[in-house]
């Protein structure tokens, strides 16, 4: 680790004269910049995907653990009586921490996305919803269903588990895929830089041998290449990350209610993470070029 700090220091303090000993190679430079930029752009999205999927899985997981809903469908005049009955049943059900009938205001808010804000909730035969908060151990859903069937036949227990479990599994899988993508991108960057560095080293075999002849150490020669590729990867990845972030910011958003697609983006401290992509790409480039240079230099002369 310490030696890499020393290398970084050498790389960023060495003067321009040292840089000139290896002739510039236009194509390799441009291709390296482009590839690093493209990879960084992809990495931004993979990161955003992972984080969004993670947020979704966490939120669903939390809600899943905490709440269920009871829906009571009954003629308007019986509705309050049935609601009362259901609440009484819930009070005596082990595993239920709290139960609360949603008021008109809340019901309207839930329906608003579908029917608009001016829905006359009072006048419609809308089912009454009861939000049930579970204790840590939870309740026996089957048992509660049976009791409700006996005492409040119009009540339906929706414990969310049925449809949310697979959703959470899917979100978790999506998060995993995001991280796998990032790993693959890191590998691809390393491979790309290794190929480019090998090509540059091979193209400069004569220059390297002249440098050796006049007393250059392997470190000095390697640094000339490492410095180049590290700076290229840093620059390319910097531009790629910037464009990626702008693209993320420019994504149409429908706010917090969105799913994984529309929720793609960074929240709070997570904005720091994509900023780590360029330095990370630079470190990958440094390690890859150094390994390539070390190998080539010991093979030459």
């Amino acid at each position: 680790m310490k030696s890499y700090v020393a290398i970084l220091k050498r790389i960023f303090t060495r003067d321009a004269a040292a840089d000139r000993v290896v002739p510039p190679t236009g194509t390799t430079a441009r291709l390296t910049l482009f590839s690093a930029g493209a990879m960084a752009f992809l990495a931004v999205f993979a990161l955003a995907l992972s984080l969004a999927a993670g947020r979704l899985a966490d939120r669903w997981g939390e809600e899943l653990a905490r709440t269920s809903t009871i829906r009571i469908t009954a003629p308007t005049e019986q509705l309050s009586a049935q609601t009362e009955a259901a609440l009484r049943v819930l009070e005596t059900t082990p595993g239920v921490a709290a139960a609360r009938a949603l008021d008109d205001e809340e019901q309207r808010a839930l329906l608003e996305p579908w029917f608009g804000p001016d829905l006359p909730v009072e006048d419609l035969p809308i089912p009454q919803l009861i939000e049930v908060t579970e204790t840590e151990d939870g309740f026996d859903a089957e048992g509660l269903r049976l009791r409700l069937a006996a005492e409040v036949p119009n009540a339906v227990l929706d414990d969310h588990t049925r449809w949310r479990r697979p959703m959470i599994a899917a979100a978790s899988r999506l998060r995993l895929m995001g991280w796998v993508c990032i790993l693959l991108i890191v590998g691809a960057v390393g491979a790309m830089i290794t190929l480019a560095a090998n090509a540059a080293l091979a193209a400069n075999a004569r220059v390297i041998s002249v440098l050796r002849l006049v007393g250059a150490t392997d470190d000095y020669i390697a640094d000339a290449f490492v410095r180049r590729f590290t700076l290229r990867a840093l620059t390319g990845a910097g531009v790629g990350t910037l464009i990626g972030l702008l693209a993320i910011i420019a994504l149409p958003s429908i706010g917090d209610t969105g799913g994984v697609l529309t929720g793609l983006g960074f929240r709070g401290m997570h904005w720091v993470l994509p900023l780590l992509i360029p330095p990370f790409a630079a470190i990958v480039a440094l390690l890859a070029t150094q390994a390539a240079a070390r190998r080539v230099l010991t093979e030459l002369d």
């Binding site: 050796r212 002849l213 006049v214 007393g215 250059a216 150490t217 392997d218 470190d219 230099l297 010991t298």
Partner: peptide, 15 residues
């Protein structure tokens, strides 16, 4: 290899 490199700084070579 580094020792050899340092040695070359004390030997001037006309190739």
């Amino acid at each position: 290899r580094d020792d050899v490199a340092l040695c070359r700084r004390r030997i001037g070579v006309v190739h």
